[in-house]
């Protein structure tokens, strides 16, 4: 009897998630009311990094592929937007055939496609190694792309490209920070829903199996390589989408987006939030971006505080924020 009653009530997690989502949707009005419109831009950045971090988490947490080169996909997504804008403004087709564009659906699609292609190439080679070698070879590919974009003077080289025209999305005016935020939030929620489906599917289970024990997977008659590659490609596509959104928000793209410290930051968001959990990377992104913003407003030397905080999280908070949450609120 009690069980039947309980199964009809929505679970506590579902209630908490609904409240959280409602809060996220209402955030622009709350920020406006609190007299802090800059909070919208901060929330947009959090949503974008959350998207990138949860994409990395698919490779890292689900598939056990510790990529130290995801900045490559983040930056490629960003450069897809920047380069298409540049050719649009120069009125000169890319490679003589592809016209430039500022239409957001098209640029996002191009970014995701480019990210997928790059992830297919990098993943196909890198997945022939494993362990520390995998960490280092993904780093190597990202560094190659970093130096490639530094040396491409046509697209600004070291200085990067300014994107002076906001992407156009039918029915939205993205000059309004709140509308850009809702777009990013919507894409984040859609991406998380996709990830949830993927991780629960047979494909996701095989991917998790590859992380836990490849030998057993082989004994079951499954070859891990194609599953891992597919997971890596999907992960690269999500990260590239986040990069494209980031350029729309910052209106600027530079090789900094491809720098290895960006790969490190994304990794830290995942670890901070909780590896292999659906919402962990979201909380991790919110915590890292939020801490950076709060500490840097407070003192110029914020890194000297953030460093030890990260250290304490590793030493005493195993499993990240999600584990902490579960400990405070046992199910």
């Amino acid at each position: 009897m009690r069980n039947r009653l309980r199964s009809r009530l929505p679970s506590r997690d579902a209630v908490a998630l609904t409240l959280l989502l409602a809060l996220a949707i209402a955030l622009p009005w709350l920020a406006e009311a609190a007299g802090n419109p800059a909070g919208i831009a901060l929330a947009t950045r959090i949503a974008i990094y959350a998207l990138a971090a949860s994409a990395l988490n698919l490779a890292l947490g689900q598939g056990g592929m510790v990529s130290f080169g995801h900045a490559a996909f983040f930056g490629l997504g960003g450069y897809a937007v920047g380069i298409l804008y540049a050719h649009w403004s120069w009125q000169e087709p890319l490679l003589g055939i592809l016209p430039g564009t500022v239409s957001l659906p098209l640029t996002l699609l191009a970014a995701v496609g480019l990210g997928g292609l790059a992830a297919a190439a990098i993943g196909a080679l890198s997945l022939r190694t494993s362990g520390v070698q995998f960490i280092m070879i993904t780093l190597a590919f990202a560094q190659m792309l970093f130096f490639l974009f530094v040396s491409l003077k046509a697209y600004g080289g070291d200085d990067g490209l300014s994107v002076r025209r906001q992407g156009e999305f039918p029915g939205l005016s993205l000059r309004d920070p709140a509308q850009l935020y809702w777009l990013c939030l919507g894409l984040l929620v859609g991406w998380l829903a996709l990830l949830r489906r993927v991780t629960r599917s047979r494909f996701g289970q095989v991917l998790a199996g590859a992380r836990q024990n490849e030998r057993r997977l082989r004994a079951l008659g499954l070859t891990p390589y194609p599953y891992k590659l597919a997971g890596f490609i999907l992960s690269g596509m999500g990260t590239a989408l986040a990069g494209a959104l980031m350029v729309n928000q910052a209106r600027f793209v530079s090789p900094d987006m491809l720098h290895w410290t960006k790969s490190g930051e994304l990794m830290i968001m995942v670890i901070l939030g909780g590896v292999g959990t659906l919402l962990g990377p979201v909380f991790g992104a919110a915590a890292l971006v939020g801490l950076e913003s709060i500490l840097s407003a407070w003192t110029e030397n914020w890194q000297i505080i953030l460093g030890p905080i990260l250290l304490l999280v590793v030493l005493f908070g195993r499993g990240g924020l999600m584990a902490l949450l579960r400990r405070v609120l046992p199910a």
Binding site: L306, G307, L310
Partner: peptide, 17 residues
Amino acid sequence: HLDQVLATFGLILFFNQ
């Protein structure tokens, strides 16, 4: 390795600053 990466990244921030 992930925990080590996070912790030593924290050390980098600390030492640089």
